[in-house]
Every structure is written in C-alpha cells, then in structure tokens.
Design a binder for these strands. Structure first.
Lengths: 218, 218
DNA sequence: AAATATTTTTAGATAACTCTAAAATATTTT
DNA sequence: AAAATATTTTAGAGTTATCTAAAAATATTT
C-alpha cells in the first residue's frame, strides 16, 4: 500500500509526464510539489523499488503501468470528491481543490463506489476534467485551448487548465463558466489577447495567459 | 495544529476519562489505541506541552478544556460523516466506523459546516451517539443500559455502546435497530441474561454482554 | 515493612519524509 | 574542448511516531 506522500508524488509524475508519455525531471517534480530536489531523488528511488516508476540516475523517471493505475485511482477519487463538494455541498469551483487533496487519500473501495453512484456516475469534474473509471479509463473529449482559435470561431467552454482560486474567481467575475457559449470576436496578433462574446451577451477582453487556460469544443 | 496521531490520542483520552471527568492511566490509553505504553508516555508529554492535557508522571493524564474542545471537534466530524455514510451512501451501521476514522481528520471548516447543513443538522449518529455542535455542546438524553432494567419495563432502543461490526451484525440478525420498541419479558438473575420482545413481534433471548451494550429510554 | 508484582518512564533504535550542504554528473557557452 | 553553469545525487541531520529493553516508581501481597 502506498503512503499519502507516495500517492502525491505519483500523481505529480503522472501529470508532468503528459499522462505517462514522457520522462520527468527531478526539478520539475520538486517545483510542482514544493519540495527540494534532494527529497525527490529519495522518493523516486523508493517508487522505483516498488515498481511504480522506472528511474535512471541523472536522467529522469518514467511512470510504469502499475504506477499509472495507482495515479488514476487517486485522480478518480479527487475528481469525484470535487463533484460532491460542488453538486451536493454547494462549494464554488474555486473552493474545492484543497479539500479534495485531502479527501483523495481516504481508503475505502465501498466508499468511492457508493459516492460514484450517489453522484450519478459523473463523467467530468467541476473544472471539466474527465473522471477515470475503476480501471483508469476515461473519455478523452477533443478540447482546444482558446488561444489557438481564429476570430469568428464559436464554441462551448468545456474545461479550464488552471484550478487556482484567483483564476477561477476571475472567470466568475467576467461571466465565464463551464458550458457557456462563446465566440471570438477580435484577436490581437501582437500579444495574443482577444475579445470574446459570452452567451451572446457580454463582450470581454482577455489576455493570452487567460485564453490559454480556457478549453472549448466546437 | 494537531497531527492525526495527536487527534487520535486526544479522542481516546476524552473517551476513557468519561468525557473529561477523571484521570486516565497510560496503560488504559495504550490498550485502547493498540500502541505500547512507552509510546503513550511520549505522546502525553507532548500533549501536555501543547496544553491539551495535564500530566503528572506515574499518575495519569487529565484532559484540559482546550483538549476537550479539540476532541469534541473530531468527534463531531466523525459522527457527521457516519450519518452521511448511512443516510446518503446507504452504508450499513456496522460498515461506517473505519471509514469515519479516516474522514474525521479532514481539515476544512467550510466542509463540515456544509455537511451538517446537507444532512439537515442531525442530532445523533447511526449508533445513537449525540453529535456535538460547533462549540462542543451536545444534547445528553437519559439512556439506560438494558441490563439495568426490570422485567416488564418497556422502552425504545436509542443507542448502542459497541460499534464493532460483529456486535452490530448480530443485532441486525435478531431484528434490533435504533428506534425499535422493546419490552423485557424475562430475566435470569443468575447470569443477567434476558428475554425481550421487539416491536411486539419477535421474542429473543440475549446474554448480559449484549444487554449491557443496548441503551434504551422509557 | 519487606518482598513481589505491576505500571510507567527513560534510553536507545528504527522507519518515513523532509531538509541543507557538498559532491557528482550533464549541459551550455565561449 | 575547456570553462562555466545548471541539474541531480549523496551524505548527514532533524522531526514525528513508533518500538524494545531496561530502569524507576508505585501498588499489592505476604
């Protein structure tokens, strides 16, 4: 059985490796987790011994199939709890992350099975991220970052990349939410900023930094 | 802020001290927590330094007002989660304890406030134990252990003392549940065993060990 | 009240996770 | 390709929570 710390490292490695495709550097992990590189070296050696990653010194880590399954279990729990907090306990989408970071480590197969049922088998969390099933499989919808989109394109907001409360509160303020209709009405090539029309009502002007973190489908 | 381990010790001390009235011995704590007396000595020294208990060597510990408040917060969370598991996730009353032992350590004021609201401010948990409010206050109903009761007395089952699954599954099997009506129809003075009538339907014969763990009101 | 038994504490170790500082390796620049 | 820079690992240490074994204090029995 993995410790909380091990679960957190595995989750970080999974995310940083683009869902398992590429190797991850020690520094990338230490940045992401707010620990020191020395601590990371220790931990990935241990995860290697447990068969969760393959580790070559000075090279980087690759997550193993086994590790990927473990990471996806934790991600499943995290996202189900987020749905619970928003749908049932009326949390706002910017308030759920920290609490879900704790709840994701609760160990009980029955609990997560019943929670899934209670929530009516949701497919995405409050930020539009897909929820893996018991086997780690999840629906991968085609999502385009808004900054890659031409003037005139219309779509629906289906996810966000940044789950920090300052970003999400900003989206609340300008009227952006999951499911909102959207059209790109202007684009400044120089800096990538753009004007968008939300729900055929408000027009707002957003920076590239913001548009990069908004995902749409057409 | 207290660690999980510290919270667990505090909870044990609170329970063993008859809700804070009397001092508790090192061995009693180590028994209750399945740790060694040496570990307990270490921990209570630390809890004393933090002002959670007062500790005299070779004498025992008394929980402080501060410690009592902390213990009651944890107990409040534990019992609210138990209600959630039974009322919302359809857990049986014998399945909740272990999971609630984990959930009780989740740190979020908002979470527990919203959970309380979501559950419609329950006053007791699935075993009939009262749920403290935010200040640690709780309704103390008069509850009589069934073994202290004369033949002919009628009452309602309001709580159980043992939350272990083997006891609770036995109660399920003989048709005893919280809220059931009950009458003592026979009593064997020699061993304290008794026959009871449940809901004016089934008669069952129970040992003193069982009757001690069933609490009624008249 | 002395001997014995029990309880409790102290001392020293271990495991998990983290850190700092220094050494080793890899990468980039000149 | 040598020097400078950046990254990563190792070595050694601290913290928390646990343990075992031995010592100290308290309680019980004779």
């Amino acid at each position: 059985m993995l410790s909380f710390a091990e679960e957190n490292y595995l989750k970080a490695i999974f995310h940083l490796s683009d869902s398992g495709a590429t190797e991850v550097s020690t520094n990338a992990i230490s940045d992401h987790m707010n620990t020191k590189p020395a601590s990371v070296s220790d931990m990935i050696r241990k995860l290697d011994e447990k068969g969760m990653v393959t580790y070559k010194k000075y090279y980087g880590v690759n997550i193993s199939r086994k590790g990927k399954v473990m990471a996806l279990q934790v991600i499943r729990k995290h996202r189900l709890w987020e749905v619970f907090l928003v749908d049932k306990l009326k949390f706002n989408w910017d308030e759920v992350h920290e609490v879900a970071e704790q709840l994701e480590h609760i160990r009980s197969g029955l609990l997560i099975q019943r929670l899934d049922e209670f929530l009516d088998y949701p497919k995405v969390d409050p930020h539009g991220d897909p929820i893996p099933d018991e086997n780690g499989d999840m629906a991968v919808a085609k999502k385009t970052p808004l900054d890659k989109v031409e003037v005139g394109v219309k779509g629906k907001i289906v996810a966000v990349n940044d789950e920090g409360s300052s970003f999400l509160q900003y989206l609340d303020k300008i009227g952006i939410y999951l499911g909102a209709k959207l059209e790109v009405t202007e684009r400044v090539d120089f800096d990538g900023s753009m004007e968008i029309l939300i729900d055929n009502k408000q027009k707002v002007f957003i920076s590239r930094e913001v548009s990069q973190n908004i995902l749409i489908t057409d």
